[in-house]
Amino acid sequence: MNRPPMPIASDLLPAVRESCIEAGEIALALFRPGEKTAARTWSKSGGSPVTEADIGVDTFLRIQLSVLLPDAAWLSEETVDDALRLSRRFVWVVDPIDGTRAFMSGSPDWAVCVALLDEGVPILGVVHAPACRATYTAIRGAGAFLNGAAISASQVATLKEARIAGPKPMLDALARLEAFEPADKIPSLALRLARIADGTIDAGLISPDARDWDLAAADLILNEAGGRMTGGEGQPAIYNRETPVHGMLVASSNGLAEPLLRALQRLRDGQPQRI
């Protein structure tokens, strides 16, 4: 089957980055640092919260990104899923506000996330955290950047030196096996990965049920910064499946990946104590 030429990600990135920054301004208009958001809020059918800012950003990005690459399909947290994406080469994967609860409560740790998949593989990623004044970008094979400056994951190679973020039950379980330094809570999964990419923290744990839109952009940024995110058996994340849901994931600098996976294997094997 004849396919169109792959878009040059470096040509698309400036416009995607600018679109994310503009989208962030839409959300910032309703964000109140340290206070409850000014946005109208309600609960989705599964009980998770959504705000008018999520919907406004989603609508804006769908218009902007569809102009940039009209043939690409669309997968977003705030849009009804369309199975057409399964047959398309290119897919935009969008989380209008990753960390909605943080946004609602006045915490700065939320982000606008956009990834472009080519045959299920992220080739472009932007994680823009407006309240933190941080914009992470990456193109496959071209490195990762924070506000235009190259970033890289830490060189820490032992768990006892590592700063690790994640859900408290997962951190508590790991602490029964290995000594490490718990990092401050980072409610946005994308920012958790991005802060591993820039060396702010060394590793992160992600509980089951994360979705493609939580991960795809930041996964690419982390990979390009010299880190990796895998399942508990070391397998890479697979995107644009029929059900875009993931199991437990671990993310770290490359040097920590094997020690972290070995510790989790011991946990699964029923060795809940340090050795």
Results as ranks from 00 to 15, higher is better:
residue 1 M to H: 13
residue 2 N to P: 14
residue 2 N to A: 03
residue 3 R to V: 01
residue 3 R to M: 00
residue 4 P to K: 01
residue 4 P to E: 10
residue 5 P to Q: 00
residue 6 M to F: 04
residue 9 A to Q: 02
residue 9 A to D: 00
residue 16 V to W: 01
residue 20 C to S: 11
residue 23 A to H: 07
residue 28 L to I: 03
residue 29 A to H: 07
residue 39 A to Q: 09
residue 46 G to T: 10
residue 47 G to S: 06
residue 48 S to T: 15
residue 48 S to H: 13
residue 52 E to F: 04
residue 56 G to D: 09
residue 68 L to S: 05
residue 74 W to G: 14
residue 83 A to F: 04
residue 85 R to P: 01
residue 85 R to M: 07
residue 96 P to C: 08
residue 100 T to N: 10
residue 108 P to A: 04
residue 113 C to D: 05
residue 116 L to V: 09
residue 120 G to F: 01
residue 120 G to P: 06
residue 123 I to F: 07
residue 129 A to M: 02
residue 133 R to I: 09
residue 134 A to N: 00
residue 139 I to R: 02
residue 143 G to M: 09
residue 147 N to L: 09
residue 149 A to D: 09
residue 152 S to F: 08
residue 157 A to I: 11
residue 158 T to K: 07
residue 160 K to D: 13
residue 179 A to E: 15
residue 182 P to V: 06
residue 184 D to F: 11
residue 185 K to Q: 15
residue 193 L to G: 06
residue 195 R to W: 15
residue 196 I to F: 04
residue 203 A to V: 07
residue 204 G to R: 03
residue 206 I to M: 15
residue 207 S to G: 13
residue 211 R to G: 00
residue 212 D to T: 04
residue 216 A to I: 01
residue 218 A to H: 07
residue 221 I to T: 01
residue 223 N to Y: 05
residue 225 A to Q: 00
residue 225 A to M: 08
residue 230 T to G: 05
residue 233 E to D: 15
residue 237 A to I: 15
residue 237 A to V: 15
residue 240 N to R: 12
residue 243 T to F: 12
residue 244 P to C: 14
residue 244 P to K: 14
residue 247 G to W: 12
residue 248 M to A: 15
residue 248 M to L: 15
residue 249 L to G: 05
residue 252 S to W: 08
residue 252 S to P: 11
residue 255 G to W: 09
residue 257 A to C: 11
residue 258 E to W: 04
residue 260 L to D: 10
residue 260 L to E: 11
residue 268 R to I: 15
residue 269 D to R: 14
residue 270 G to N: 05
residue 272 P to F: 09
residue 273 Q to N: 08
